[in-house]
Amino acid sequence: MARDPVRVLVTGAAGQIGYALVPMIARGVMLGPDQPVILHMLDIPPAAEALNGVKMELVDAAFPLLKGVVATTDVVEACTGVNIAVMVGGFPRKEGMERKDVMTKNVSIYKSQASALEKHAAANCKVLVVANPANTNALILKEFAPSIPEKNISCLTRLDHNRALGQISERLSVQVSDYPDANHATVTTPAGDKPARELVADDEWWGLHHDCSATGAAIIKARKLSSALSAASSACDHIRDWGTWVSMGVYSDGSYNVPAGLIYSFPVTCKNGEWSIVQGLPIDEFSRKKMDATAEELAEEKALAYSCLA
């Protein structure tokens, strides 16, 4: 029996990540090879011509799963009836801009888009925020879309998760599929499953690769552009896996002593479209310090964002 199409919104669709993401969705990478989709693409008026070009390419490609395309600069039209929203659009920090200036711009964007989703999206819409600062943008969206359950709002940390997997697989010459995550990884070897930290007994290497942002900077240096392809692929992974153990930026309930009320990256398992935080993992001193520093930074960012609402 044919399935009804799922309406998927991509904001910032004419940008680099959007351009990489929409064909993946149309091809079934995000929702599977049997799920028809209708793409809703939103961008700002100056990008209208480029957005129409993306639509023309989607039509040219004749994706069998793609049952319709809405390309618009109107936020209400874009949000109407959507089941999944991937929020790629945001205001990037430019040279000479203060942090609060960037936050003010993004608060305005996410307040407007959240309000439109609140009024016009389908019931039980799931939202993934990609645009940085993703954690805080997701928090602002939650504030202005109160009828969307907090369990349905998350931000993208799967890119760093995937980068960690890739770096470990490269270091150990194993397949990414041979282990689930970095710090609690077991790697399948001819002698059986071994802890990754035992196979790479190099604390300096782990410390250097714990922060995957360096990979993003290296890609920008090599391409002269940001990592659009891997970000788009990670967004598809995030939605598709929303029973595996993955990383998602979700609303904190106080687990692992992370202050409640922040959007924070946790290890989660997903089943039937619902995520649950994995509990009881041991946290070493190095990771604890990194986690606390991240929580402190996010709390400061939250305070700054809320001050922009005043």
Rank of each mutant, 00 (worst) to 15 (best):
242 W>D: 06
232 A>R: 06
214 A>E: 10
239 I>T: 08
183 N>T: 11
206 W>D: 13
228 A>P: 01
178 D>W: 09
200 V>E: 01
184 H>Y: 15
253 D>L: 09
146 P>S: 06
163 R>P: 00
247 S>H: 10
242 W>S: 11
255 S>M: 00
189 T>D: 06
195 P>G: 05
231 A>G: 12
203 D>A: 15
248 M>I: 02
255 S>P: 00
163 R>S: 04
149 P>L: 07
139 L>M: 12
167 Q>H: 13
185 A>M: 12
148 I>A: 03
179 Y>C: 08
154 S>E: 05
165 L>W: 09
250 V>D: 05
166 G>R: 12
227 S>V: 00
241 D>V: 02
254 G>K: 04
183 N>C: 04
225 L>R: 14
211 D>C: 08
179 Y>A: 06
131 A>N: 06
139 L>C: 01
220 I>W: 12
131 A>F: 04
234 S>C: 09
191 A>V: 04
183 N>A: 14
235 A>C: 15
192 G>W: 10
163 R>D: 02
142 K>Y: 05
191 A>Q: 15
233 S>W: 12
211 D>I: 10
255 S>R: 06
233 S>A: 15
213 S>G: 13
188 T>W: 06
246 V>Q: 12
161 H>R: 01
192 G>V: 10
174 V>C: 11
150 E>A: 13
204 E>M: 06
237 D>L: 08
150 E>L: 07
193 D>S: 10
211 D>Q: 10
229 L>C: 01
201 A>L: 07
226 S>L: 11
237 D>F: 13
135 N>Y: 10
212 C>L: 11
184 H>V: 00
140 I>S: 03
225 L>W: 08
187 V>A: 03
252 S>Y: 02
180 P>L: 10
131 A>K: 01
213 S>N: 14
140 I>E: 01
184 H>R: 09
207 G>A: 06
229 L>T: 12
253 D>S: 14
220 I>M: 13
170 E>P: 00
189 T>Y: 02
248 M>W: 03
173 S>M: 09
165 L>Y: 04
183 N>S: 11
169 S>Q: 03
248 M>D: 00
218 A>M: 12
234 S>I: 06
217 A>Q: 14
148 I>M: 06
194 K>A: 13
135 N>F: 11
227 S>N: 15
158 R>L: 08
232 A>Q: 02
165 L>C: 06
239 I>L: 11
254 G>I: 05
231 A>Q: 10
195 P>Y: 03
179 Y>R: 01
209 H>S: 08
169 S>W: 05
206 W>A: 11
162 N>G: 01
205 W>A: 09
205 W>L: 05
237 D>Q: 09
199 L>K: 09
236 C>Q: 03
161 H>S: 02
214 A>S: 14
141 L>G: 03
238 H>W: 07
217 A>N: 09
212 C>S: 15
250 V>W: 03
177 S>T: 14
146 P>Y: 09
137 N>K: 04
220 I>Q: 09
168 I>R: 01
174 V>M: 07
